[in-house]
Design a protein around this nucleic acid. Structure first.
Length: 228
DNA sequence: AAGTACCACAACCGCCACCGT
DNA sequence: CACGGTGGCGGTTGTGGTACT
């Protein structure tokens, strides 16, 4: 694609999984901020701005991924009417959404509203629906990959601190309670690839036992169906 | 089947405000 | 006060994919 190291020695273009891992490692160790130290402290060949952007828009753990909901859309419309293009201000009212995400959403959905309204509305709606379905699938795939990365880093860490199975069980309880299903599924999946079958069984049993507490039978069945 | 239009998203760029020295 | 570093913000571009013609 022609992207690589440029003049000042900084890499540009799409981020690799390894770069993401280094950036996550930096934030874990030093927290957010001081982005220009990233290259020096973890050896990432990216400038501070690029690191900050990648973290804020893509790697932050509290990001909500997936479709903008109709409710969120109405908030965006309302706040844009009030604030104009102050995306960061609007984003503060939508937890888990970034200014970049909202900005992009606005551009593609509302900026060309005038042109769009002149089209056949039926045709346009059907088109949009098909596209949304396709993109939902793409996002799910993408989320799986991201979750898998998280799992790998989690397992990397626990390699050094012995009670890995106990940690995994704690994590399951936490993720199940917070409805973080993608992560939960990937976590067990990821764990299964590096450990023996009995450990994996214990984790699944742990998940099933949560049923009484959360009443999540359907949810768990979906997880298991996906897993097999 | 090939070319084109369109969309969503990631990433970059330039500007500016803030802050410490 | 001036200056440089840093980070936030909004605008823009590039890319990869599907739908349409």
């Amino acid at each position: 694609m022609g992207w690589d190291v440029i003049g000042g020695g900084w890499r540009k273009g799409p981020w690799t999984a390894e770069e993401d891992r280094l950036l996550i490692q930096y934030v874990k160790l030093h927290g957010e901020g001081r982005w220009n130290n990233v290259s020096r402290l973890v050896g990432l060949k990216r400038n501070g701005k690029s690191c900050r952007l990648r973290w804020v828009n893509y790697l932050r753990p509290d990001l909500k991924r997936g479709q903008i909901t109709p409710h969120e859309e109405s908030i965006i419309l309302e706040l844009h009417a009030r604030w104009g293009n102050r995306w960061s201000t609007i984003a503060r009212s939508l937890p888990g959404r970034t200014d970049n995400e909202i900005k992009n959403y606005w551009r593609t959905h509302f900026k060309k509203k005038g042109e769009a309204s002149s089209e056949n509305p039926e045709k346009r709606r059907a088109h949009l629906l098909r596209r949304q379905q396709f993109q939902l699938q793409q996002r799910e795939k993408q989320e799986d990959q991201i979750n898998m990365k998280k799992v790998i880093s989690l397992l990397d860490e626990s390699e050094n601190s012995v009670p890995t199975l106990a940690q995994m069980k704690q994590e399951i309880i936490y993720r199940n309670a917070s409805d973080d299903l993608g992560f939960l599924y990937s976590m067990i999946n990821g764990y299964a690839t590096g450990h023996d079958a009995s450990s994996e069984d214990i984790l699944w049993e742990c998940l099933w036992n949560l049923d009484d507490f959360h009443g999540n039978i359907a949810k768990q069945q979906t997880l298991v169906a996906n897993f097999h």
